[in-house]
Structures are given as C-alpha cells and as structure tokens.
C-alpha cells in the first residue's frame, strides 16, 4: 500500500465516461495523496483532460465516483455537484489547457474575481457594498492583499494594473495558477501548465508548484507532457492510455514500466533505448 492510498485528498473510483460509442475513460480508479504532486500522463487522446473535466464538474461521468476529502473532514461527491460548487465548497480549483483568463480585465481584477464568494458574503450580497459599509471595505483590502501576495509569488506584481491579455504567454500561465490559488483550493488541478514554456520558465514553474505544495496545504494534480516537469516534481504518476490506467506509481517506477514505454513509443524493444535517451526518459 503506497503513501497516497493512506490519506487521499481525492479518490477516483471506477470512473467511466462515454461519449456515445466512444469510451474516453474506462473504469479508472486512483488516489491523489494529500500534499502530493500527482501527475496524470499519457499519449494524446488518452483521456486525461476528460478525467479533469469529470473531477471539476464540467462533465458528468457516465459511471463511477469522485470523492473529495477536505482536510476538515468533510467529504464531497464531486460527480453530483454543479461545477461552480466544486470550486466554492469542495475547494477544487483548476486551470485550462487553452488559457482562459479574463483578458480585458487587469491582473488584479482577475485575482479579485477568483475571490468572488467570500467577497460576495462580505458585501452582504451587494446590499451592504452599495452603501459602502466598513466591513466590506476591510474584506476588500484583505482580498487585495491576498492578490498582491500571489502576484508577488508569480513575479507579476509589476504589471498588476495591466490587462491580462497583454501578458506574454508564460506570464499568462502563471497568472492562471495565481488566480486558481486565490480561490483558496485544497486541490489544484493544472491542465498542461508547462505547455509552451521555455526551459527557464519551466524550471520556475517547478519551483512555484513545489512552493504551493509546501506552504499552502494544497495538493496538486497535473496533466503534463513535459517529462522534465513530471519526473522532477511529481511524487506519484498515473499513466493513461486509451482511457485505461496502464501504470501507477512513483516517477522512477513508472519510467521503467515496459507498458508505459510501449504506450509512449510503440516501437520494438531494441529501439527503445535510443528513443528513450532522445526524450530524456
């Protein structure tokens, strides 16, 4: 029994997702350990993003259960919850493969939108806010401080009042992570956070994810193609192929799994070594 099975933050049990005749995810079960960085990898079309969409409520799974175990002992059956409540109550935040920022709003505004629910409560559902009561103003100040903290952590503080769409690609990726963190998640789901980043940015991302995991009681589930990110920071790797789990274990275990090598490379054994070196496995 591995460490992630003892105290999982997220349990996925027999998850199946069918789109008509296509089985995108087939009877998938795995655990995401509390405080771990878990990577979900697999070739293109393996069903990784579908799993994400099931976890964050954008799809309703055909079969199976997705259980979020919060650190305060509450359990949430995510497959039964509307998507916005998964973020608001079960504290699961996500980023998107194709970045979805509020481009016409400033960085600070983006992070303020992420703190919508606590601020809404503080503004007395806008009634107290219209009259400018002090309780709302102090809540707003706190929210700005939280946003400032994450802008500093992601090195975006200099451009806090610039529109998000003006940022370079790498900065937009980091802003999306900062925005997700501003909603105070216990599980952060990152869909290809390193896609399109250069090696330097990729290393910075690794440091940021390590920091989030260490300092913020936040477990991380990520989809990634960049093996340098996966192998360096993940505690636990789950490999999908054609919607089925083919391997599950620590990074070195998975790396040497012949099934994984076959799924990724699909070549006879004697050629594997050569290609393996090429991709840095």
């Amino acid at each position: 029994m591995s460490s992630w099975d003892n105290n999982p933050v997220l349990t996925i049990e027999h998850l199946t997702m069918r789109f008509g005749g296509l089985v995108a995810v087939d009877n998938l079960s795995f655990n995401v350990g509390r405080g771990d960085i878990t990577a979900l990898i697999g070739p293109n079309g393996a069903g990784k993003t579908t799993v994400f969409n099931c976890v964050t409520g954008f799809y309703k799974p055909t079969e199976g259960r997705v259980v979020m175990n919060r650190s305060n002992g509450e359990h949430y059956l995510l497959e039964r919850m509307p998507d916005f409540q998964i973020s608001a109550r079960a504290k699961v935040a996500r980023t998107f493969q194709n970045i979805r920022l509020f481009g016409g709003m400033t960085l600070l505004e983006n992070l303020m939108v992420a703190q919508h629910n606590p601020l809404m409560l503080a503004s007395g559902y806008s009634v107290a806010g219209i009259f400018g009561l002090s309780s709302f103003r102090s809540a707003e100040r706190e929210a700005v401080e939280k946003a400032r903290y994450w802008l500093e952590k992601t090195a975006l503080i200099d451009r806090a009042d610039a529109p998000a769409a003006d940022l370079p690609y790498g900065d937009q990726r980091r802003l999306e992570i900062a925005r997700a963190m501003c909603s105070g998640p216990e599980l952060l789901c990152l869909d290809e956070p390193a896609a399109g980043l250069n090696p330097k940015e990729s290393a910075e991302l690794n440091a940021l994810l390590q920091y989030i995991r260490k300092e913020h009681d936040t477990s991380i589930l990520l989809i990634e193609h960049d093996m340098s990110v996966v192998m360096e920071i993940s505690d636990h790797v789950v490999v999908l192929d054609y919607g089925e789990k083919i391997s599950d274990g620590t990074a070195p275990e998975v790396k040497d799994d012949p099934k994984v090598i076959a799924a990724y490379l699909g070549v006879p054994d004697e050629e594997v070594d050569a290609v393996e070196e090429e991709v840095g496995l």
Binding site: F96, L101, G103, V113, L119
Partner: peptide
C-alpha cells in the same frame, strides 16, 4: 456595483463564462 464583487463577476462573465464557473461563481 461595478466595483463590487457582483459587478466584477458580470464583467468576468462577459470575458469567459467557463473560467467563471471554474472559480466558483
């Protein structure tokens, strides 16, 4: 209202509805 969370949520909704839902709105 524009300066309150609800106003910002309106504008965020105009920008990207899916992102709004992922943030618990």
């Amino acid at each position: 209202l524009r300066k309150l969370p609800v106003g910002r949520a309106w504008e965020a909704l105009r920008e990207d509805e899916i992102a709004c839902r992922s943030l618990g709105i």
